[in-house]
């Protein structure tokens, strides 16, 4: 996994609440055998019509917006456990997703793929949407070390939470699996005293 330190970028706004994983990547695109290529179908049914023509209204089809930060409405990533949602977001080029609330499994999946979910307050999220609406070229800075998300032009900085363990993993580019494999002796010792039926 790549190390995560700072991201300085413009952002893509999707001010829709409760975006579920079926919207992020519809089930019919889950048939791949690898982790690559899902970005092409990110938000597929919002991005393309039934004849596979781009829907001009949708933000990913609008050249005005770009960057490696996705800003979305409350309860982002609810629904299925498919990690393909995180892969699609990462494969498309996003490194950060900002929302006022994330679904649990999505959050875990994102972190396992080096994508940082930045959870800020409802009101702060509104300010972010407003900043992008005012100026699509607005720059944002995400600082993992300081745990801040900053609207650069105004200097407004919002604090976000991240567990100590996950922060360590992201900044060093570690996976959970590295941590687990370093504990195999403990796991075997645990098994030997476990009673199961």
């Amino acid at each position: 996994m790549q190390k995560f330190t700072k991201v300085i970028s413009t952002a893509v706004p999707i001010p829709i609440e409760e975006i579920d994983t079926d919207q992020i990547i519809p089930a019919r695109f889950l048939k791949a055998l690898t982790r690559e290529g899902f970005g092409a179908n990110l938000f597929r049914d919002w991005r393309y019509d039934h004849q596979d023509k781009p829907i001009p209204d949708f933000v990913l089809n609008n050249d005005t917006y770009g960057g490696s930060i996705l800003v979305a409405g409350n309860n982002f990533g609810c629904g299925s456990s498919r990690e393909h949602a995180a892969w699609a977001i990462g494969d498309y080029g996003f490194k950060v997703v900002v929302s006022s609330f994330f679904a649990d499994i999505f959050k875990a999946n994102a972190l396992n793929n080096g994508i940082l979910p930045v959870q800020i307050g409802q009101d702060e999220l509104r300010q972010v949407f407003e900043a992008i609406e005012k100026n699509a070229a607005e720059i944002f800075e995400v600082d993992l070390e300081q745990q801040t998300f900053t609207i650069v032009s105004s200097g407004a900085a919002f604090q976000f939470e991240i567990g100590a363990y996950k922060k360590m993993c992201l900044s060093k580019g570690y996976d959970d699996i590295d941590f687990l494999l370093s504990n195999v002796d403990r796991i075997i010792a645990f098994e030997s005293k476990q009673e199961i039926y």
């Binding site: 456990s81 995180a86 499994i105 396992n112 793929n113 959970d176 687990l180 796991i187 098994e191």
Partner: peptide, 22 residues
């Protein structure tokens, strides 16, 4: 509980997961 594919890999590899208590 449901898990993502990275966690499927972790479970296959170690029969364990890294979790914070809900």
């Amino acid at each position: 509980f449901g898990i993502g594919t990275s966690q499927v890999e972790q479970t296959l590899a170690t029969q364990c997961l890294v979790m914070t208590r809900p």
